[in-house]
Amino acid sequence: MTETVLKVNNLSASYRKNTVLHDVNFQINQGTLTGIVGPNGAGKSTLIKTLLQLHPTLTGTVDFFGLPFKAAQQVIGYVPQRGSVDWDFPTNALDVVLMGLYGRIGWLKLPNRSHKQMAMEKLEKMGMAAYADRQISQLSGGQQQRVFLARALVQDADFYFMDEPLAGVDAATERAIMAILKELKEQGKTVMVVHHDLQTVADYYDHVLFLNKTVVAHGDTTSIFTKENIARTYGGNMRWTLKEEESHVVHSQ
């Protein structure tokens, strides 16, 4: 089962005059869990936003399941960075999760009991059932991230994009989120995650995409996640030291 679900061809994007992405080419197979890694400003978030047409495309084509984005939109889920919304907004956790169903509920219609039931199940899955009625500003960072993930799960998409879901969350939440990602993968869903922590890449992802304005390397974690590729992506100031049982990435002085 190696169906290609995403084809990106010669993609480029910019902010004003600064080109952030140029000549990005890669293909993603179904059922893979890909970590997107690269230094700050490498265009990781921009890549996701450009793929999902949240950021204008300069050149290039993007095919989802062999279709243009608009046609595949309903089966694509997106988990934005936690900091992209105002958590002071007056609503509760259950309500945020319900937003994941808005497309299915239909525009201008209100959610009914069965929709709430579905949202509640996903909250439960993320260990957040007890916080369903909690005002979202009173949730911790990790809990907010879990709510975002529950909202993505309830969408029941086939292809998920997540922008740094592990940023600023505690170890328990990180484990919970990674367990969910593995489960999605086992269900045959495809997931792409912007990831920051090089130490955990090998444990978490079966595929890795090195990005620094363009794709530096992409493929199986076992063959592609090498110190050469890390050095090529991050520049010379990163040194990859392999010890007997643990690996470290450190800044060389």
Binding site: L54, P80, T91, D95, M99, I105, W107, L110, Q155
Partner: peptide, 22 residues
């Protein structure tokens, strides 16, 4: 009033709303 749900998601998380096809 009729677009209450849409206004809510539009104000809270417009990017996600766009992803849903709004």
């Amino acid at each position: 009033a009729i677009g209450f749900k849409e206004w809510k998601i539009y104000l809270f998380d417009p990017q996600f709303a766009k992803g849903l096809g709004l």
